[in-house]
Simulated scan of single mutants.
Amino acid sequence: MALPNIFTNTVSDAVIQRINQLSPSTQPIWGKMSVDQMLAHCNVTYEMIYDDIHQKPNVFMKFILKMLVKNMVVNEAPYKKNNQTAPQFIIKEAKNFEIEKKRLIDYITKTQQLGESHFDSKESHSFGALNKIEWNNMLFKHLNHHLTQFGV
């Protein structure tokens, strides 16, 4: 079963509507992150796509990530609760809820506007070139996981 296509207006708008249901006081159903940290955590994926502010893995680590992690990230199976995450995705400090929320919505909108053809065969920060389905699965699945974590 294919995941919803984050590159379509319908799906990206629905995800943004879910984000807009969050407030600074929204509590997680599971996990330790606050809602502002979760938004910042979700932004890391897009920072890796657009902002080039995270160190890229070396050749050996990229090989390991491709062999051991990639399939779990790009397949259609949902993430398990309380999975481990990569160090650059761990947000320890409090963040500004409104700033992180706006950043995430802007990233989702930009991604949708660029469209799936922009992402087909685009190089991933950690996994090498991904096809448009793999990009979709990675982006949608991660957002859906964390929005579900916060009850929206």
Rank of each mutant, 00 (worst) to 15 (best):
Q149F: 00
I53H: 07
I90P: 00
Y46T: 00
D106H: 11
Q17V: 04
V152N: 06
N83D: 13
I19P: 04
A2P: 14
E116R: 06
L65T: 09
T45I: 00
L68H: 13
T109F: 13
N137F: 01
H125A: 03
C42W: 00
T26S: 14
E76L: 05
T10K: 13
I16C: 10
E47V: 02
S121I: 10
N9R: 13
F63R: 12
N96S: 00
A129E: 15
Q37W: 04
F97Q: 03
G31K: 09
N71P: 11
V15D: 01
H125Q: 11
K141I: 06
T26F: 05
K32H: 12
F97T: 02
W135F: 03
N82L: 09
D120T: 07
I29C: 00
V11Q: 04
H145Q: 04
M1R: 07
Y50L: 12
K62T: 15
M48H: 00
F127G: 10
K62I: 08
E134W: 06
D106N: 15
I91K: 05
T85F: 08
S117T: 15
E98K: 11
S124L: 01
N71M: 12
S117N: 14
F140D: 11
V69A: 14
N82R: 08
K141V: 10
I105E: 05
T85W: 04
I6T: 00
M38V: 09
V74S: 09
N58T: 10
Q37M: 04
M138E: 03
S126M: 11
V152Q: 10
Y107H: 04
F97H: 05
P4S: 04
M38E: 10
I90V: 07
S23W: 08
H142D: 06
M72C: 00
K110G: 06
I29E: 04
P78Y: 06
T8E: 11
F89V: 02
V11N: 06
V11P: 06
H54P: 01
S23K: 13
L39A: 05
Q55N: 13
N75A: 05
K70M: 11
D51N: 15
D36S: 09
N131V: 05
T109L: 14
L143C: 07
K80D: 08
D36R: 03
P57M: 12
L68P: 08
Q17L: 02
L139G: 00
Q21P: 08
M1F: 08
P24E: 06
N136A: 08
N58C: 10
H118G: 02
H142A: 07
E134R: 10
A14G: 02
C42I: 02
S23C: 09
K102M: 02
H118I: 08
H41C: 09
L65Y: 15
T45E: 00
F60Q: 09
I19C: 02
E116C: 02
Q55E: 15
Y46Q: 00
V11H: 06
M67V: 13
E116S: 13
Q17K: 12
N71H: 15
S23A: 09
V35S: 04
L22Y: 02
V11M: 07
G128H: 01
T8I: 01
N96Y: 00
V35C: 09
M48C: 11
M67S: 13
P4F: 08
N71F: 10
I91Y: 09
S121A: 15
D36G: 01
D120Q: 05
I108W: 07
H54F: 07
L3E: 10
T10F: 07
P24Q: 05
